[in-house]
């Protein structure tokens, strides 16, 4: 493992956690969401960002989740699984916009894993919870896609890790 990759992944994770904690309180109206989830879009530019994002999810869930470490298994599992599928799809899709759209759809769909967790721990009704959490995730990623696209134009994420 190269030192630069190690350092960059660690900083990405730290940034994910910092943003989860800081920017999240600025809620956009009534919809609560984790702005840091837009980091998932980084993978559309370079799959090597995955480790940093997974670590970020791991630590935010560990330190802040209300449901406790059970969130580590489901939350981190959700991120790994979805990003894994997404990286596989990226092998066939080269257009960045298409990738961002696919990523948004994919994450919205796989939120059923989080719904299943809430169903298990708190006995929430599965389908309604899925609808609810998927909506939050969809808004963040749909809004995040153009933002990340703009950022990429200025920063060129591909070369940064």
């Amino acid at each position: 493992m190269k030192v630069k990759f190690l350092a960059t992944s660690a900083i990405i994770a730290a940034l994910y956690i910092a943003i989860t904690m800081l920017v999240a309180p600025i809620s956009f109206g009534q919809v609560q969401f984790r702005i840091a989830e837009i980091f998932n879009h980084l993978i559309a530019f370079n799959p090597r960002f995955m480790l940093g994002v997974v670590l970020g999810v791991f630590f935010s869930n560990f330190l802040m989740s209300s449901v406790g470490p059970i969130d580590l298994i489901f939350g981190v599992g959700h991120t790994i699984l979805t990003l894994g599928i997404f990286i596989f799809i990226c092998k066939f899709v080269k257009n960045i916009w298409a990738r961002l759209v696919i990523n948004t759809t994919l994450f919205t769909f796989t939120m059923f894993i989080i719904a299943a967790q809430l169903n298990l721990v708190l006995d929430f009704p599965f389908w309604e919870t899925w609808l609810f959490v998927a909506f939050g995730e969809f808004v963040v990623l749909a809004v995040g896609a153009p933002i990340m696209y703009t950022l990429n134009k200025r920063l060129d994420f591909k070369k940064l890790i």
Partner: peptide, 16 residues
């Protein structure tokens, strides 16, 4: 990596 992240969370929060 976890230790580095933990070390930099407050720094990056201040930065943000």
């Amino acid at each position: 990596m976890m230790s580095i992240s933990l070390r930099f969370i407050p720094t990056l929060m201040d930065e943000t």
